[in-house]
Design a protein around this nucleic acid. Structure first.
Lengths: 230, 230, 230, 230
DNA sequence: TATGAATGAGCCTTCATTCAT
DNA sequence: CATGAATGAAGGCTCATTCAT
């Protein structure tokens, strides 16, 4: 089960008591990252248009002008946020999952768990919400995301399902649709987390792991009583 | 349940004394609806903040000032758009589905098909995308939507699944999660349609009915080869 | 001597007690002109860059936003100011001067007097100062001005001198240079008026008509004592 | 008369204890001059307001901060540019022209030629264009320039014309106006060079020496056919 | 002395909202 | 009712100026 790697993007800068020495120099290198983190959080929360650059700067602890030292415009800041968060992690995951020795049902479940831990739970999840919400205003960004994130993710899942079929564990199936059946709940969780969850009463909160497991169970075994014909 | 009337509209009795001005009269009554349609389309496409009221007015064929005759502010326009599009259709659907005579597997499939035909493929689908995208800026609206749309929909689906269990067709299951397994692909389709789809290459378009059927098949029957133990 | 035409551009809007009725409508048509006048005055006085659009608007008696109803940007306002003040008056002057019946010496003097009365004395004189001062920032504007104003003026003066030569009144001369000898004092007067004059002590003010006459006298008669050989 | 020293420059005694750092030392002393040159060029080209201090610094090969080591503000830089370029050369020219042994017609021509060579064709010409363009924003500077440059120049020319009258070479004339008749073409040439010339087609360029000679010829000899009465 | 990161006041421009016609 | 001219608060962005290194 490979040691759970540290969350890749420590989006909330730890601010862990590093003595406030050499203010200028030390910060210099951290600035762009801090600004991108702040921007991601605010863009996700309020959308691109209603986020003021001054807010982003304030949250990153700098003045408005400083932001423009690092990003030539609000729009470029947005693009940088997306670019920065496009994890090229699929290659790594590919390897990790290729080395997986369990059966394919376990692999499917594991994959979704891993996704949740490394993306869904973290601030990185916001980027997808952001891109989907703003796709209308930034079509190139959406296309870029589709190409760099969605497509590779799709391929990764497809390979996993194919493995199950090849090993005689899964029935033959329409792979494309089946892949979307795995993607859909993740997208749903993520949109939910960033939109309805904060507004929903406690009774209607969703436990992500519980839902993922339930979803996997259902997809693997089905709902029907065995022997029933649909 | 039924859509609360747009409050601002002074629904004056038809000015039917003046026959030749019928055109104007008819338009007068249609105005709010035309404005709401225009607003929905634009809000979905560009988001609340970056849609200008002037555009909405122009698309509805009236002047900017006229819009404010019907809606006291842009924010109220937004709320009216959401309210107007909150299909109070669940009561009706409840009846329709209660009268369903087929087996529960068919009922599940039928429900999702109906949803797609009446919501997903229509302009109404935009409303959910809109609410999810703007939830950060309009938490009350999101909560309202959650209460008026999501919860009733959830209940409806839950009742359908319960029917299957009651009739011995479905295994016992964690109903809440299972309901979300039905909702998730619909939300996914809808977000996809309004964000990535316009930017994705033809090869990656999703056929909604195909996907829904595939999803239903998988949920009902499972992926595993019968006899396999996960 | 043709009746002295009214100054062509009444740059200081008369504001002559027209009763303040129909504020909106009446002003609507006057607005662009009032804004252009205000802009001309301020641009001349302070330069393009250090004139704030808000000042222009205030001087024209409207709010900042209103200015942008008529001109899409400060730069377009500038261009409009130049365009508006490019009197296509040379054709008219051509006719007027063609009908001139006196001798060519009188014609030269008359021409410069006319120029002073219709351009030099009026706010229109500012436009040349403006264009020359801002030529570095607006090369296209300068080129445009050169083409539409300087060149036609040059031609007009050249024709006047040619007339003198043709009638045996003037010696043959290098026409181009001679024309510039007539243009130079006008440009000088105009730059002086808009730059040094307001700062110079009374003792160093220049009387334009006196200077023009003196200049014409000198150019026509020469400075040398008759019979002297230089 | 002599240029007031740039006040800010801390003209420290040459650091000649450290030979190997001669380079830096030499530059250090050259700094203010380089900055003033850069500033002159840019102010002339783009005007005071739209020249950025960073550009000036960059053109002088130093950082923005360094500029403020030598000049406390952009405005002081501007004043220093003017002060630095106020040729205190009139005393010297006075002597030179006082010793002139030719006739007064030659002296007039020679004076204008000298002015062109030492001012008109050099970068120093820009200063007058600059002062005239920015007079509206810097009236004290304009007054200062008027006092320190224009007036002495005026006096010098007046003395030259007086010499001609005294020696019986020139007719009596209105000296003030006549002086302006000599100044005007120079100002014209200078404004032309810095504004229209870069934008005018080759066919409309002015040859300065040709124009000066022509102007002098015309002024001296007059335009009229001898014997004609205007 | 020199640097360049940081600041924040200031300006152009947009756009929801008002209101006279 | 409808219009569209007018408003002014707000926000993106610039740039002179400061200051720690």
């Amino acid at each position: 089960m490979s040691a759970p790697p540290t969350p890749v993007t420590p989006l909330t800068a730890p601010d862990n008591g590093a003595e406030p020495r050499q203010r200028r120099t030390r910060r210099k290198e951290a600035r762009p990252g801090e600004l991108l983190d702040a921007a991601l959080a605010l863009f996700v929360e309020k959308g691109f248009a209603s986020t003021r650059v001054e807010e982003v700067a304030a949250r990153a602890g700098v003045s408005k002008g400083t932001l423009f030292l690092y990003f030539p415009s609000k729009e470029e800041l947005f693009k940088a946020v997306v670019r920065e968060n496009i994890a090229g992690r699929f290659a790594e995951w590919n390897l990790e999952l290729q080395g997986f020795s369990g059966n394919s049902a376990e692999l499917v479940r594991y994959s979704l768990h891993v996704w949740w831990e490394r993306i869904g739970m973290t601030a990185a999840s916001g980027i997808t919400k952001l891109v989907m919400s703003e796709a209308g205003m930034f079509p190139e960004i959406a296309a870029f995301y589709q190409q760099e994130v969605i497509a590779p993710g799709h391929d990764l899942l497809r390979r996993i399902l194919q493995r199950g079929i090849d090993r005689g564990e899964f029935r033959p199936m329409q792979l494309d649709y089946a892949v979307y059946s795995l993607i859909a709940p993740m997208i749903f969780l993520l949109m939910w987390k960033h939109s309805m969850a904060p507004c929903a009463p406690a009774s209607q909160q969703i436990d992500p792991i519980g839902f993922i497991d339930s979803q996997v169970d259902l997809l693997l075994d089905g709902m029907l009583v065995p022997g029933q014909t649909p």
